[in-house]
Nucleic acid binder design. Structure first.
Lengths: 130, 130
DNA sequence: TTGACACGACGAAGACGTTCGTAGTAAAGT
DNA sequence: ACTTTACTACGAACGTCTTCGTCGTGTCAA
């Protein structure tokens, strides 16, 4: 059984691309380029090169059966988010989840609905680990 | 009134140094080097260079009145954590604080005490914004 | 068939991050 | 006085990230 090694933490530009693929599903370079272009100027070949590198790194996998290759993430959104959150949690928050949450709340004002959502999430989490 | 521009996001190596200064308070290069050395091999001049660069960037400020310069953060731990959390929140979690919290919880099992701490934090947060 | 177009491959440049060796200098010990 | 030690400063090397231009090739329409 082949154990694919964990891909490295995505860089900033790579995360932008992942965000597009997460929301769009399997995408071509053109799809991603069009999406990113809406928010900031970017050359097509820049996105292409990045996605090729991401495929090498194991962040994306690609289907070459069509002329325009179709890319999708190797790892789920949840897996990658967990890695990123865990990394920041350890490195900047000393592993304190409470401080981590406080960081998120102080970064941006949370709505009432959002707070309720978090509370519900905590309840379910506790239920699951009990 | 002079408005010092926000310093850039600290890099990985820079965050290691900030973590030391956060826990130790104002420190010399030697202090930081000794602390970091305990966890991984590092040359003294590597730490020195990094801290000099951090001072240029506005991440650290230094007091040169003593022979061994004393460094301290320009921004509070809380400010920097807020920046880092906010950055990751937007870029990897689409701004969803609930998903952000879920990421933290799934990265590492939370103890009962930690969950309670988070709940209390939510209550106080809501009280403060009401 | 030929021209316009879309696509992937590739190389290279420039910025940045990280590491370390060397040099210069002041202080402290012998 | 002289040597050793503890600092800072600096430059250089190396890798990584990001960006872009160019090339070759396949596709489609006139």
């Amino acid at each position: 059984m082949i154990k694919t090694p964990d891909p490295p933490r995505p860089t900033d530009a790579e995360l932008d691309i992942l965000a597009v693929v997460w929301s769009r599903g399997p995408s071509t370079v053109r799809d991603v380029h069009d999406a990113i272009r809406r928010r900031k100027p970017a050359q097509y070949t820049t996105i292409l090169k990045l996605m090729q590198i991401m495929a090498e790194k194991g962040l994306l996998r690609r289907d070459e059966s069509e002329r325009a290759h179709v890319y999708e993430p190797c790892r789920t959104k949840e897996w990658t988010r967990r890695q990123l959150a865990g990394d920041l949690l350890e490195r900047a928050f000393g592993g304190s989840q409470a401080n981590f949450v406080l960081g998120a709340l102080s970064a941006r004002k949370a709505s009432r609905a959002e707070l309720d959502e978090i509370r519900q999430l905590l309840d379910e989490y506790e239920k699951g680990t009990r």
